[in-house]
Simulated scan of single mutants.
Amino acid sequence: MTEARRKRIEDVLKRRQPDLTVLLENVHKPHNLSAILRSCDAVGVLEAHAVNPTGGVPTFNETSGGSHKWVYLRVHPDIAEAFRFLRERGFRVYATALSREAQDYREVDYTQPTAILLGAEKWGVSPEALALADGAIQIPMLGMVQSLNVSVAAAVILFEAQRQRLRAGLYERPRLDPELYAQVLEDWLRK
């Protein structure tokens, strides 16, 4: 490995945001999962979360641009377990939903520990997951369609989170505790 490659890996890792993530509920199309992970990498998400009640998660494809190597994906057995895991770590979970109660996604404070819950491509977030969420958010739509593709919606929301976090200075210093930083660095250097 060249010194330039090692420095790039260290610089990227120093900007990872351990308290920003996505929770994907039954996102079963491989190209959508891959595109979401690519957006996660672009904004500095360390670990994404997924629940797929039909079993397993889809395989990656070329859409990820290799980002699945840099963003860990933790698969949970069910939505309740995923919420338990995130809540134990201090996350607030905001579900994307088409409802009158949903607030504009730009009104959420993403500088706090935040998980963005995105649902299946056709059906969205399940009623169970929506009931568990701390709030519902939506991307205002001014055209004829009701919503964006799940991977596009994830990118839009994640880049708003990045904008807020950049403004708050959260990318200016390492956010991972030293032990976790060392573990991830060792893993990334092997890739």
Rank of each mutant, 00 (worst) to 15 (best):
P18C: 07
S151A: 13
G90M: 03
L148V: 02
V22N: 06
R167M: 08
V51D: 08
V12S: 14
P77K: 00
L98F: 05
H49I: 06
Y171F: 09
I36W: 10
I137P: 00
L180T: 15
R173K: 15
V51N: 07
L73E: 11
V184N: 12
F91Q: 07
I9P: 01
K14V: 01
Q162F: 09
G135T: 10
L98I: 13
K191I: 14
V43K: 07
D19I: 00
F159A: 05
D109C: 03
L73T: 11
Q103W: 01
R16S: 05
G135I: 04
S67L: 00
L73I: 07
W188Q: 09
L117F: 01
A161I: 02
L148T: 04
D109W: 00
Q138M: 07
A154D: 08
A4M: 11
Y94G: 00
R89Y: 02
M144I: 09
P113N: 04
L185H: 13
A154K: 06
T111W: 02
A35L: 09
P113H: 02
V156W: 06
H76N: 06
E47D: 10
G56E: 09
K29R: 15
R92T: 07
K29C: 08
L86Q: 04
A168R: 09
V156K: 06
V75L: 04
L20H: 05
S67Q: 04
L176G: 06
Y181S: 13
P127M: 01
V156R: 06
P174E: 15
A4C: 08
A129D: 10
A155H: 09
E160S: 04
H68T: 12
M1F: 10
K69G: 15
A120M: 04
K122M: 04
P30S: 14
S126I: 01
L20D: 05
H49Y: 07
L142F: 10
K69S: 13
S67R: 02
K122L: 06
S39C: 11
I9L: 13
T59G: 15
E160H: 03
L130T: 05
A161W: 02
L23K: 01
L148M: 07
V152A: 12
A42Q: 09
K69M: 08
E3T: 15
P178Q: 12
V150S: 06
R89W: 01
V71T: 11
F60L: 09
I116E: 01
I36M: 09
G135H: 10
K191R: 14
R163I: 07
S39D: 10
I36D: 12
R16I: 00
N149C: 06
P127I: 01
E3R: 12
R5T: 15
S147F: 04
E10F: 03
E107I: 00
K69R: 14
G135R: 06
P18I: 05
E81A: 03
R15V: 02
W188A: 10
P127G: 11
I139V: 10
